[in-house]
Amino acid sequence: MNTGGIIEDVKSSNTKVKDNLSLVYYSRTGKTERFIEKVTEVFDIPTSSINEYQSGKYILITPTYNFGEVPVEINEFLSNHNENMVAVMSAGNRNWGQNFAKSGETLSKKYNVDLIGKIEMMGTQSDIEKLVNYIKQLE
């Protein structure tokens, strides 16, 4: 991966986020998990799947299924853990047109949290930078 700009700045500063913030994700096909792996290659932040989540503030990374819907597993998770979500980032496929990564919009409105952005498939360097920039402005 080409790591320029902010990614190099983050790597060289050994930035570690506050211990009370993590990335929580759901990944049925592995694409969202691969995005999380790419983020943690350049930014030191705790991560967990929705099944491993314990406690604390988190940013949710979720796929979008069935042409714009929030995965059932995410809705079930949030029924018990929405109070600690500070923001959401969603993934999808641009072939879905206006429903591309729509789960993030839906959750942002429902839970009144920031929508950091939408990523296609496993995300790009620009998507990683957008997430890292968002986290850094929280510190």
Rank of each mutant, 00 (worst) to 15 (best):
R94M: 04
Q98H: 07
F77M: 04
A87K: 03
A87T: 02
V70L: 12
L115I: 10
P71S: 05
S108K: 09
S90D: 01
N51A: 12
I45V: 09
N80H: 08
I59C: 10
Y53K: 13
S108A: 13
I50W: 06
Q54I: 15
M89C: 01
V88Y: 04
E83N: 13
R94G: 02
M85D: 04
D114E: 14
T62I: 11
N66P: 12
N95V: 01
I116D: 05
W96Y: 04
G68W: 06
Y58F: 15
V86L: 14
I116G: 04
A87E: 03
H81R: 10
K110G: 11
M121K: 06
Y58G: 11
M89A: 01
N112Y: 10
N51T: 09
D114P: 12
I50M: 09
L78S: 04
Y111V: 12
K110R: 13
M89E: 00
S79N: 06
G68R: 07
Q98C: 06
S126E: 12
V72H: 14
M89P: 01
I74Q: 05
D44E: 03
N99H: 06
V113A: 08
A91D: 01
D44R: 01
I50A: 06
S90K: 00
S90M: 01
A91E: 02
A91M: 03
S48W: 12
T124L: 03
G117A: 05
T64F: 07
E73F: 03
F67G: 12
I61P: 10
G92L: 00
N75E: 13
E69W: 11
N93P: 00
S48R: 13
I116E: 05
E73C: 04
S103K: 04
I50S: 08
G97A: 01
T64V: 09
S103C: 05
I61Y: 09
S90Q: 01
G117M: 07
A91Y: 00
K109F: 14
N51I: 02
T62C: 08
S55Q: 15
P71E: 04
G68N: 06
N51S: 13
Y53M: 13
D127V: 00
N66G: 15
N99K: 07
D127Y: 00
Q54G: 15
I50G: 05
V86D: 12
S49C: 14
V88H: 04
M89R: 00
E120W: 03
Q98F: 10
V113G: 10
I61R: 08
R94P: 02
M89F: 01
K57L: 15
G56C: 15
T106F: 09
N112T: 13
P71V: 06
F77T: 02
S126G: 07
N75D: 14
K102L: 09
S126D: 09
I61L: 14
L115C: 10
R94F: 01
F77Y: 05
Q54F: 15
Y111S: 11
I59F: 08
K102Y: 11
E120S: 02
W96V: 03
E105W: 14
Y65G: 09
I61A: 13
K102S: 05
S55N: 15
G68V: 09
G104R: 07
P71K: 05
N95M: 02
P63I: 09
V86T: 13
G123L: 03
Y58V: 09
M122G: 08
L60F: 14
S48I: 12
G56Y: 15
S48C: 14
E73Q: 10
I45C: 01
